[in-house]
């Protein structure tokens, strides 16, 4: 297989500084569910969004297994991820990170949710969503003063995930150059 030029491009120009900025945006989003962060500066291959691409570059490396779900699993995406991060591509049940459209990531059952003694050994899902805005489901819990609104894709699934606390999955929702975080500690309910 030959690698096209696009594989080598589209990453960080100054990784130490750009990844530091990107991490701060991601950290703030996960620490404050409902907050929508904006990221830019990389050009991942379609169908990966800019925000998802930056998250992968910032968090994944040879120590983390990445699962590409559904139509995210293209040769271009595989090559780009492998070239820029060295992350091994794995199945859902081995993944530290999973990336795909929400529907393609389902069902959530196979992902690792940690163990009672090591709840941190759980997967983080990067879910591409068509809409990301501060409306819809009501969020409450750590990081949120009173309550916040976020257009999450699936209230029932996220509620079930939160019910496993302190085990469970953590989510980033990405849409274009924007992202929001939803840790397992967030309680999600319908409006």
């Amino acid at each position: 297989m030959t690698l096209s030029g696009a594989v080598f491009g589209g990453g960080f120009c100054d990784a130490p500084v750009e990844s530091a900025r990107a991490f701060r945006t991601a950290m703030s989003a996960l620490a404050r569910p409902g907050e929508i962060g904006v990221m830019g500066g990389v050009h991942p291959p379609a169908p990966m969004s800019v925000a998802a691409g930056i998250l992968v570059l910032t968090l994944c490396d040879p120590d983390t297994g990445l699962y590409l779900a559904g139509d995210m699993d293209t040769p271009e995406v595989r090559d780009w991820v492998t070239f820029h991060t060295g992350a091994p591509l794995v199945s859902a049940n081995q993944a530290d990170f999973a990336l795909g459209r929400w529907q393609a990531l389902l069902p959530l059952a196979p992902y690792r949710i940690g163990t009672p003694e090591y709840p941190d050994q759980s997967a983080t899902l990067i879910a591409e969503v068509a809409v990301l805005e501060p409306s819809g489901a009501v969020l409450s819990g750590p990081g949120i003063r009173d309550s916040a609104l976020l257009s999450v894709p699936d209230v029932a699934a996220l509620r079930a995930n939160a019910a496993e606390y302190p085990l469970g999955l953590d989510f980033f929702f990405t849409c274009g150059d924007r992202l929001a975080g939803l840790p397992r500690s967030t309680r999600v309910s319908e409006e």
Partner: peptide
Amino acid sequence: KRMIRRAILKGLAVP
């Protein structure tokens, strides 16, 4: 740094 950042995110997720 990535290893530490991942730990920070898990820490925030499980206060």
